Simulated assay, not measured.
Amino acid sequence: MAEEDSLDMGDMFQDPEGFYEPEPEPTFAEHHMLNGQTVRVRLVGSHPLYGNLLWNAGRTSSHYIEERASTLIEGKDVLEIGAAAGVPSIVTAILGARTVVMTDYPDPDLVENMRYNAALAAPQIANSSSLYVDGYKWGAPVEPLFARLPEGATGFDVLIMADVVYSHREHPNLIKTMRETLKRSKDSVALVIFTPYEPWLLPKTEKFFPLAEENGFRVTKIFEKLMDNVLFENDPGVSVMRRLVDFANSSRMSA
């Protein structure tokens, strides 16, 4: 075909203006600490991993940590997985943890938003605390997380796992991460808190705990709490916290 006979397709394959709905804008939310401080965080506008929500489990675990900060957090090394907006991590850094590593799935939008929130909270964070942000996929190698620890540290004293066990197929990867990141000490704990947003799936969610016991963890149920406000339709508004101690590792340490 001669050049002068070629068809001019123009903008035939370009979507017309307004064809797609605009992406929701980021919003902000506040968490009110028991000591009177307010933690303000940005939530992504829309995200398939629900980074656009401030989860009830994050608020509840933050209050639990604050009530026990002197023995649970101060001077300790803390890892949060599935942090979303990162409220528990930020609260932990405010309360004087030595090291806090805030992580979620290595999605650029999620990671950038966590970094934004860490920077927003910087004036509130204790001078003795170091707060880091990383993308981390559950079950992946943990060396990048250990690189954040102070020299001589052999693992994390506390793991914060707020609303992560609802992802049933990820249970083995969660436990793998727990085993590889928790310090081998009788005082090291993983705090697992979840809300049965889909109560009909609660039996599947709770299978995480016997699986953890099979892998050497000692599981203790700490509390159930009725939330003031539900997050989703059909959400019964009950948060449950379990404390997991790596009993097998502790036994090896004392042997």
Rank of each mutant, 00 (worst) to 15 (best):
A2N: 03
A2M: 00
L7S: 04
D8P: 01
D11G: 01
Q14S: 13
P22K: 07
E23C: 11
E23D: 15
E23Y: 14
P26M: 03
T27M: 05
A29F: 13
H32Y: 12
N35M: 12
V39L: 09
L43H: 06
G51F: 03
N52C: 02
L53G: 04
W55K: 03
H63W: 14
Y64M: 09
I65W: 06
L72T: 09
E74N: 09
I81S: 04
I81W: 10
A83Q: 08
G86R: 06
P88F: 02
S89K: 05
T92C: 12
A93L: 04
A97H: 00
T103A: 09
T103K: 04
D104E: 08
M114I: 09
A118D: 11
A118V: 15
A118Y: 10
P123A: 07
P123Y: 14
Q124T: 05
I125E: 05
V133T: 12
P141H: 03
P144I: 00
P144D: 06
P144W: 07
L145R: 05
A147K: 13
A147Y: 15
G152T: 15
T154K: 11
D157W: 08
L159T: 07
I160E: 06
A162P: 01
D163W: 00
H168Q: 08
E170Q: 14
T177V: 13
R184H: 11
S185V: 12
S185Q: 08
S188T: 14
V192C: 07
P199K: 01
L201A: 07
L202K: 06
F209M: 03
T220M: 14
K221C: 15
I222P: 15
F232T: 01
E233G: 04
R243W: 11
R243A: 10
L244W: 02
V245S: 01
V245D: 12
F247E: 09
S250Y: 13
